[in-house]
């Protein structure tokens, strides 16, 4: 409390001219505030409120306490989807962001063939997730898919239905998004390009090797960008729908079940209250991720 008071006291008092401009500042903020309230705040509050109701989406919601949450947490599909989400988040944070960062360094240092790398990496990223899901259905097809055709050169009897057999389905779905990390690359590349060249010169004078320069100077200075990439990647895993719906629909069994699939199933059964309870859990997980990554990457601290 004292710290807040001190910080407040340290703020310079606004001048007369600045105070006179406040009304114009507020006026120009008004459209943004209206949009935020109408299209973000109100729906979020509605989702929270109706998650405690029995609601078919058409008639008036009836308050049913924690029933939707109890049903949710006793549903094996929900528990499996939480487990899947945790695993996908781990894979995304380590491999997806790692791969995107690696490509950012390749594009930054421009080794021989970097333009080809850029083209090969960027072009698939402009294809929608839904289209990729369909393409992967062909790639992983047991009869004529590229993958199994290649494997059968070495093992003619090889037969795996990648999207429809445990435990392969989980990894097959993972591959539909794992290497498409263009956002990570662009964000990290932006930070890399902003590192002052004097730092590099000073490091060279001090005898730092290339790897030491990357490890002790560039990577720490890209901390904010990498943290942002982790947040973007993890929240994308929470909302991931097309890649699952168009390939495994959550199967086989519940192997690739996700919260988004459960939410849509709730709507299919006119259980909007339950669907919104799933939505609340997705929202809260997103907030937790935001908080944890912010703390881990110390994103509120400046580097320069």
């Amino acid at each position: 409390m004292n710290a807040i008071r001190r910080r407040w006291a340290l703020r310079p008092r606004a001048g007369r001219l600045e105070r006179a401009n406040y009304k114009w500042i507020y006026l120009f903020l008004l459209p943004t505030v209206i949009i935020f309230v109408l299209f973000y705040a109100v729906p979020i509050v509605q989702v929270f409120v109706t998650s405690f109701t029995r609601w078919d989406g058409f008639t008036d919601p009836e308050f049913n306490g924690l029933r939707n949450y109890i049903n949710m947490f006793t549903n094996s599909a929900f528990l499996q989807s939480l487990k899947n989400l945790f695993l996908w988040c781990l894979v995304a944070a380590v491999f997806h962001v790692g791969f995107g960062t690696l490509v950012a360094f390749v594009l930054f240092y421009r080794p021989r063939g970097w333009k080809l790398t850029r083209a090969v990496f960027m072009i698939p990223n402009v294809i929608s997730a839904a289209a990729w899901a369909m393409i992967y259905r062909f790639i992983f097809n047991n009869d004529f898919g590229v993958l199994n055709t290649i494997i059968r050169f070495f093992d003619p009897d090889f037969n795996v239905q990648w999207f429809y057999q445990s435990p392969w389905a989980f990894w097959a779905v993972t591959l539909t998004w794992l290497f498409y990390a263009v956002i990570v690359t662009l964000v990290v590349l932006g930070d890399l390009m902003n590192i002052p060249s004097e730092l590099g010169e000073a490091a060279r004078l001090d005898g730092a090797t290339g790897w030491q320069f990357i490890r002790h100077i560039q990577l720490p200075l890209c901390r904010g960008a990498i943290g942002t990439s982790v947040i973007v990647s993890l929240t994308a895993r929470i909302a991931m729908y097309e890649q699952i719906s168009l390939t495994t629909a959550g199967g086989p069994g519940n192997d690739t079940m996700s919260l988004s699939i459960l939410l849509v199933n709730g709507i299919l059964d006119y259980r909007y209250g339950y669907a919104n309870a799933v939505g609340v859990v997705m929202f809260l997980i997103g907030l937790v991720i935001l908080f944890v990554v912010n703390r881990l990457f110390r994103m509120d601290e400046t580097d320069y």
């Binding site: 239905q161 429809y164 057999q165 445990s166 495994t248 629909a249 959550g250 199967g251 086989p252 069994g253 699939i261 199933n265 709730g266 299919l268 059964d269």
Partner: peptide
């Protein structure tokens, strides 16, 4: 059967029935 079971759950489990997992 309920809509979500018909549209999603039934088809999702058929491969596991076919390969004997279930």
């Amino acid at each position: 059967i309920p809509a979500s079971v018909a549209n999603s759950d039934f088809g999702r489990l058929l491969p596991s029935l076919a390969d004997g997992t279930y």
